[in-house]
């Protein structure tokens, strides 16, 4: 069994955490990896805490359970830190990435003694600046790629441009904004 990178996403219904996990799976797939991207469905409603998962590997994945000892955790909404045990099982060799205006030093005390790497990114400001709207998932996707190093950042940028051209074929005006959001996010993740 080769190295498997396991990622857990925490978000709120409607923020696109599930979509982000699927986009990450897509991006990793495009670099030749074996991937899994799956949400944990609960009582779906806007604003409720939701969880999604990724496994990324060089070899075929056979396990089909949820992820309990993730290498990385991505928190799409910092109000979840007090509602959900976001660091549960998180490996100290890994990292947590939080969408917040705060610095890593400011959020670390809220993480129940987690000793691994704490990274933050202000996805809201980036999203509003680049897209004119608050869609945190594109910045968070860039942040996890940067922090985890699961793929080459340049390759990721090129791949996302292709994906956006395809995905937004009917509204090309949003492609530039999304690409800017990705490039800025790659630079603005704190705590690496």
């Amino acid at each position: 069994m080769g190295k498997v990178v396991e990622i857990r996403w925490h978000g709120r219904g409607g923020q696109g955490a599930k979509t982000a996990s699927l986009l990450l799976a897509d991006a990793a797939f495009n670099t030749g990896k074996y991937i899994q991207g799956f949400p944990e469905y609960g009582p779906e409603r806007m604003g409720a805490p939701i969880t999604a998962y990724n496994r990324i590997s060089d070899e075929r994945l056979s396990i089909h359970s949820n992820i309990y000892q993730p290498d990385y955790v991505v928190v799409v909404d910092d109000t979840l830190i007090e509602a959900v045990d976001v660091t549960a099982g998180l490996k100290e060799s890994g990292a947590i990435i939080i969408n917040t205006t705060k610095s890593p030093e400011e959020v670390t005390p809220l993480l129940k003694g987690y000793k691994g790497k704490v990274c933050t990114i202000d996805a809201k400001t980036i999203s509003v600046d680049c897209l004119g709207k608050y869609f945190p998932n594109t910045p968070m996707l860039a942040a996890i790629v940067k922090v985890s190093g699961i793929m080459d950042a340049k390759e990721f940028v090129a791949d996302m441009e292709e994906s956006f051209k395809h995905k937004f074929a009917s509204k090309p005006e949003v492609i530039d904004g999304n690409m800017k959001a990705i490039e800025r996010s790659l630079l603005e993740v704190k705590g690496i």
Binding site: Q36, G37, F38, H64
Partner: peptide, 12 residues
Amino acid sequence: QDGFITSHAIEN
């Protein structure tokens, strides 16, 4: 096939 576990999981 298993609902959600494979039906809603993206895999190769």
